[in-house]
Design a binder for these strands. Sequence first.
DNA 1: TCCAAACCTAACGTTGACGTCAACTTTCTG
DNA 2: CAGAAAGTTGACGTCAACGTTAGGTTTGGA
Lengths: 150, 150
Amino acid sequence: MDGQAPNLWTVEQVVKHLGITPRTLRYYEELGLITPAARTPGGHRLYDEATVAEVAHILRLKDTLGFPLREIQQLLAAERQLQALRESYHRQEAHPEARRRVLMQFRDVLVDVMGRIDEKMAALTALRERYAEKLARVDQRLRGDGGEQP
Amino acid sequence: MDGQAPNLWTVEQVVKHLGITPRTLRYYEELGLITPAARTPGGHRLYDEATVAEVAHILRLKDTLGFPLREIQQLLAAERQLQALRESYHRQEAHPEARRRVLMQFRDVLVDVMGRIDEKMAALTALRERYAEKLARVDQRLRGDGGEQP
DNA sequence: TCCAAACCTAACGTTGACGTCAACTTTCTG
DNA sequence: CAGAAAGTTGACGTCAACGTTAGGTTTGGA
């Protein structure tokens, strides 16, 4: 039922969209971060939108948070566990205790990540201020270029 | 004149203060990022407060901005150039044109760095929001733990 | 004075995140 | 239906940022 083709992406489309190389895609797969949604009869990888979005997310975590890929793997694992929980819930297979346990675990992961984000933001704010001050001084000296104290 | 000892730090003091290893300190020196203020008669490195602060700054740039050390080197070079300008200014050796040129160059560096900081902050804000939403949903499900829609 | 702890230089090793090449196979396009 | 372009697996190469080991020298405290 629902024979709708789920709109699959080729390797080339994904890497051009995200500005990466095929090697990166395969490396992430090798580490278990992603799994191509399908293969062509000949073995070429095909990705669905969700996986493309996940790769974009991985890149953000890596580049802006500086997380190593192994940690990102833990994070994604937790998110997937929650997703699995959501689905088991749909099928009414959720033992309330187990359900609660998974939710608490995921909560811990979330709190940890958000704490690290906040740390980064604080450090970035301090850095920004430092450079903003320097910039203000430089601009002042460039403007009133007479002979003030340095 | 002014024979005040400038309060020097040993390698051990620096690394314990900053949570790094001696190897890191030597590596940064190898790259030209820092220079120990002095050596003991026997050759042991000694650092002044300014250098310790610079190492702390390097670590922040590396960890929170994710800058590679070679780029940090450029940044520090620019800052030092400005410092040199400040000193030459004191000694009235500043050709106004050269002075202006250095100031403009440093300004460009500053604007570039601040732009990158702002990019990171924007990305971090988006990430934070994403996880905050997830956290809110999890908390809601943990609280009203009855049988709502997932 | 003696000795453990700290430090030195020089060199090779490791880890993460890919890059690159070889030798094919599949897929798209004219 | 040919040939170029894209993709496959497998393996080795690379680069940054240190870690580690070897073989000595210096230093500070009992």
